[in-house]
Amino acid sequence: MQLDTPRRPGRGLARGIPAVLSVVSAFLIWEIYVRLSGISPLVLPAPSRVLDQIVLNRALLWDNTLPTLKATFAGFALSLTVAFGLSVVLDFMPRVRRALFPIFVVSQTLPLVAIAPLVVLWFGFDLTPKVLLVALVTFFPMLVALVDGYAATDPEIEDLMRSMGATRGQIFRSARFPSAMPYFFAGLRISITYAVVAAIFAEYVGARAGLGIVILNAKNSFRPDLVLAAVVISSTLTLILFAITALLQRVVLRWRDVGGNP
């Protein structure tokens, strides 16, 4: 009896066709509009022109992508560590959860426009403020996902483990943590899409290098084509990170992809 549903390799690609078509046609319409209307490239550059700028300024863009990537990764690593550490503390100590959770919620109400310059003021133009801002923006979705995920553990599985004589720690490791994984990945996908944008915003407010600085300088010298070139790079980074998360989810949550009842 073969119960595993075979995964047909072509199917994933075929499902992506509508998305590719819609994106391509949007750029086509944009390109055609710019050419037919004769609008100034200082107002709206055509996609082809943006692409040209990417090629022309590849050295500049590359040099400034690295600091942004560094801030993104460092910030996200901090965010992940803090979110996981806090989630464990909050799960084991409900009192602490009641005391601290409102603070975390308030931290998400702070307007980034106001808080980012202050963080730069306090921590300077180096990596630190960017790392902190990326972490501030991205930790909350993951924390909420983990805490909700722990709480969603099947009570019958916990009763069963208690009947086996399991300690609170064993129940957390074997039941609550794995139960939270689907939730965690939902939070991770949200967080990762904020990460690059948060790093760029932090740079925009104050930094020596980075895609945020490229955007700031390009805007100040009325170069919307170069602004958009940096935007394309930033979006590509986010898409790559998103794809990595999706891949990771596939591996970790493999049990959810198996076929249903025979």
Binding site: L3, D4, W255, V258, G259, G260, N261, P262
Partner: peptide, 8 residues
């Protein structure tokens, strides 16, 4: 196998 692959 995973539990989801088994009958009741």
């Amino acid at each position: 196998h995973y539990p989801a692959q088994l009958s009741g």
